[in-house]
Design a protein around this nucleic acid. Structure first.
Lengths: 159, 159
DNA sequence: GCCATTTCAATCCAAATGGATCAATGTCGC
DNA sequence: GCGACATTGATCCATTTGGATTGAAATGGC
């Protein structure tokens, strides 16, 4: 059976919304993750962290998790990598000796600019099939889902 | 800074669409993957494969990749696991000795019914913030993105 | 028909992942 | 101000991941 036919059937089932989201993300990751790892020698979570640090100078590691919900040790390692590359510095917090305030360096901001530019282009490509209005609607609906109460903690899948 | 404030800022940047999609998926995966691994002792890709096999009896391993774009060895392992559990059988193809036609067993169909039900409930929860109309619009736009020409192969991120 | 090339799926193995634990620091009850 | 508990971030280590290779089978060129 052709790929199109297979997809059509899957996207007609009860789980269509989960399926289509999963498909977009798996497909896009295959392209994006590989490219970023090759070009920037950096796992995706490292550049996500750099993005967060640049946007919010002085952010703490645990706050990055609010933006990119990944395991804690993943963030910890990403931050170590960014420091080792000279893209950020970790300043011990004045008010709490456990915390480190993370700040991007000039080198970090510079590499991030390239990352953002290629990501923006990729975003345009990905959203190419949508008109400007559709794109705005899509974002607004996705934002509703993202900020809904049950995204991070589920009643039906409670552990 | 509060989690809400952080998100609001990220969702206002140039990469807002990528950010919101990534946030939904990372957040949902943290919940879903863990639950399914605990309850069904099965990685997500195994139940995805089972879903595909049940929907398309006789499907070949490589075709599953058209539905769930994951590395080839991942599918191969998932199929082995499903066979070891007695959830599918692999019938050598008549027309091509390399291929195996995959078919779900009764046990496979039974466990899949539970998986589908809990996933459907999770889907309702996740999409709770949307009205019925919004949900239909969201799906239609996501489907457009998913079936667009540049999802699986990128010009700006070509490797 | 024979050999080179392609395709399907399994396997190898270095690297990444993430749950669990740990050490250091802070907070709270009294 | 002392002991119990909580929180931050680093590290440990068994498991998983995925790019690369392999082996087996099919296809194509001649």
């Amino acid at each position: 059976m052709s790929a199109d036919k297979l997809l059509e059937t899957i996207f007609a089932g009860d789980l269509r919304e989960l399926m289509v989201i999963s498909y977009i993300v798996l497909g896009n990751n295959a392209v994006t993750t590989r490219y970023i790892e090759r070009r920037f020698r950096m796992p995706v979570q490292a550049w996500s962290a750099l993005y967060a640090i640049d946007k919010f100078p002085g952010i703490r590691a645990k706050e990055i998790r609010h933006l990119f919900p990944r395991p804690q040790n993943t963030i910890s390692r990403a931050v170590s990598l960014l420091e080792a590359r000279g893209f950020i510095v970790q300043n011990p917090s004045d008010s709490d000796g456990r915390e480190k305030r993370l700040v991007a360096t000039e080198a970090g901001t510079a590499v991030l600019a390239d990352l953002i530019e290629v990501s923006r282009q990729r975003q345009e490509e990905l959203l190419g099939p949508l008109s400007t209005e559709e794109r705005a609607v899509f974002f607004e609906l996705a934002r509703k889902i993202a900020t809904g109460p049950d995204l991070l903690r589920s009643a039906v899948m409670r552990s």
